[in-house]
């Protein structure tokens, strides 16, 4: 079984590191993995591994106190099927993320992709904030060794909650000029459909106007928005699948 390299943490940050390596593997799974008996699944071995052994999981209020986070972000709701909470620790001098804790309500791939994201931003001594802000869902999917197409949307909340946590850090430290606002803009006036809805539809596999309309009903009443919607679809296709 292919395993992800465990993240490297500087010695002086060993207190953060302690929180990260608590083994979480179910004993039955452990035995199966050791015996090489883990059978083919819908998901890759990396996804399974992160699902069964989430890295950087926040386990208790005590953990959080010890962690002393610099930023917190939360996206989604249980009602929508996904909710992700993320806490980050910043090396202020070097503008790097050096620690991250998370909690996720969601399916296997949602849990695995948040876990993987926390590894990506903290490995090799931590990621520069500027770099972390650029992480796209497909970067996470790539590291997971792919996700089934229709599970792709399950990986989009992690990067959103990360950006929220980073904004929270900027706010707490008075770096207001660095805050990135991600506002939704209404494109279909009749049905109040926003660019975010178009983004979601593209992420969910709708790659042309007809498919997006089928999912969102965009442009059914307000036909004037169709050219703009087509533009957005191209933009998000490029953003998520093109690069």
């Amino acid at each position: 079984m292919k395993m992800e390299k465990e993240e490297m943490i500087d010695d002086e940050l060993s207190s953060v590191n302690e929180l990260k390596v608590i083994p979480m593997r179910h004993k039955d799974v452990e035995a199966k993995v050791k015996a090489g008996k883990v059978e083919e699944w819908f998901y890759t071995d990396i996804v399974k591994d992160h699902f069964f052994n989430p890295r950087n999981l926040l386990r208790s209020d005590d953990d959080l106190k010890k962690f002393a986070h610099d930023g917190y972000g939360s996206v989604g709701a249980a009602a929508c099927g996904d909710k992700m909470d993320m806490w980050i620790k910043i090396d202020k001098e070097n503008d790097k993320i050096i620690g991250c804790l998370f909690k996720t309500f969601g399916c296997g791939s949602a849990i695995a992709s948040t876990s993987m994201l926390t590894v990506m931003i903290t490995e090799n001594g931590g990621m520069l904030i500027e770099q972390a802000l650029k992480i796209k869902p497909q970067d996470i999917v790539k590291r997971l060794g792919d996700l089934p197409q229709r599970k792709f949307h399950c990986s989009v909340l992690g990067d959103k909650s990360l950006r929220q946590a980073i904004n929270d850090y900027f706010r707490r430290t008075g770096q207001n000029d660095r805050i990135v606002i991600e506002g939704a803009q209404v494109v279909d006036m009749a049905l109040k459909i926003t660019d975010k809805d178009i983004e979601e539809a593209v992420l969910d596999g709708a790659h042309d106007f007809e498919a997006v309309q089928k999912k969102t009903k965009v442009g059914v009443h307000d036909k004037s928005c169709i050219p703009k919607v087509k533009e957005l679809i191209e933009f998000y296709k490029q953003k998520y699948y093109g690069g």
Binding site: D28, V38, F42, F51, G81, G106, C107, G108, A110
Partner: peptide
Amino acid sequence: DVEGEAIMLMMNEVAGICASSGSAC
């Protein structure tokens, strides 16, 4: 407080239990 697909996958992997879920996933 938990999501059905995650439950299903864990049951399937840990004990070979095949069920189904009403979750969106």
